[in-house]
């Protein structure tokens, strides 16, 4: 007598806990691709997201780069916005009240040009109601000082994470640069310096030239590449980072469909973030959540946590 396949009639458990932040699902939206929340609120129910990671905040307002700031390439986007932001006080006064009205974890991406600036902004957010954690941007390729300069030198990365650690009780999530020889060393340095999780990857340094004018397309000359073009690069780096640390890894880079997110989870990520695809289709995160749930059901898994690090190697 054969047994009919048992269809699981209960919905799989999609919840995750990343660095003490409880999320109803593992699908976040990545910094810089979702504004501060209100911009997309008419189109995306914010409560449907695992978490919102807001665009990078500095202690003081910052103008960012001149224009052009973005250019589309095959399978991606090169941007050099240059971290334009309203500054911590304006964000806390004008945008946090809006975010507090929504039942979704808010992770604030912070940056500085010096270690002292990172410390200052981290300290300012400590204790701000409605902030669930800090993503520490040590990997932006678009400003001359700070950013990637910290994220590509392991000693500076350790120092900035350790010093920020001392200034806040909030969960700390350094965002790692892909532009390093061995991502495992940086992930481990972050863990040793007190990080609660790491997120990766930030954009890949890139350049586009107008061949008629023979000038760079972007005013900043170079920018950062995001989108589907970088996804396999990101999967490899997430896999290596996850092997190197015990803290959770948040995978991002080119997610456009559920299978892209599932690859990150199988490679070792505990959560993922949708970035550039928010521009293509603001419903991408919701599609990814539904697709992961379908995958869990069809593969007989009860929880999304079973997927994390389930990669099979060898024969």
């Amino acid at each position: 007598m054969s047994t009919a396949p048992q269809r699981m009639d209960r919905i799989p458990d999609m919840s995750v806990n990343i660095a003490g932040i409880h999320m109803r699902n593992p699908v976040m939206v990545a910094s810089g691709t979702f504004g501060y929340g209100p911009e997309y609120a008419d189109l995306v129910p914010l409560e449907s997201l695992g978490a919102i990671v807001v665009k990078g905040i500095h202690m003081r307002p910052w103008e960012g780069n001149s224009t052009p700031r973005i250019v589309e390439v095959a399978g991606g986007l090169v941007n050099a916005i240059g971290l334009q932001n309203p500054g911590a006080e304006k964000f806390i006064d004008e945008i946090m009240p809006f975010l507090r009205r929504h039942d979704v974890p808010v992770i604030v991406n912070i940056w500085g040009r010096t270690v002292a600036e990172y410390e200052e902004v981290a300290e300012r957010f400590d204790g701000v109601a409605g902030v669930s954690g800090l993503e520490v941007n040590i990997s932006c390729p678009n400003i001359k000082e700070g950013g990637i300069a910290f994220g590509t030198n392991v000693k500076s990365a350790s120092e900035v994470i350790g010093r920020v650690r001392a200034k806040t009780r909030l969960p700390l999530i350094p965002k790692l640069s892909p532009n390093v020889t061995d991502i495992g060393i940086f992930a481990r340095a972050a863990e040793d310096a007190g990080a609660d999780a790491v997120s990766l990857i930030n954009t890949l340094p890139a350049m586009v030239i107008d061949i008629e004018k023979r000038t760079p397309v972007l005013a900043n000359v170079v920018g950062g590449l995001s989108g589907p073009a970088i996804h396999p690069v990101a999967v490899k780096l997430v896999w290596e980072a996850a092997k190197a640390v015990r803290i959770p890894v948040i995978g991002m880079g080119g997610i456009a469909a559920p299978r892209d997110a599932i690859e990150f989870l199988v490679a070792g990520a505990s959560a993922v973030a949708v970035g550039t695809a928010n521009f293509t289709d603001p419903g991408t995160a919701a599609t990814v959540v539904a697709g992961i749930a379908d995958y869990l059901v069809s593969h007989g898994m009860k929880s999304v946590r079973e997927l994390t690090g389930s990669l099979r190697l060898g024969n």
């Binding site: 960012g64 052009p68 941007n79």
Partner: peptide, 26 residues
């Protein structure tokens, strides 16, 4: 303009503007 998100999130299509007090912003 070439645009990214279309909703004000990405800050890709900014234009320099003047406030009433004469200061400029994106």
């Amino acid at each position: 303009r070439h645009m990214g998100c279309g909703v004000g999130a990405c800050l890709g299509c900014v234009q320099r503007l003047k406030k009433a007090d004469g200061s400029a912003y994106w």
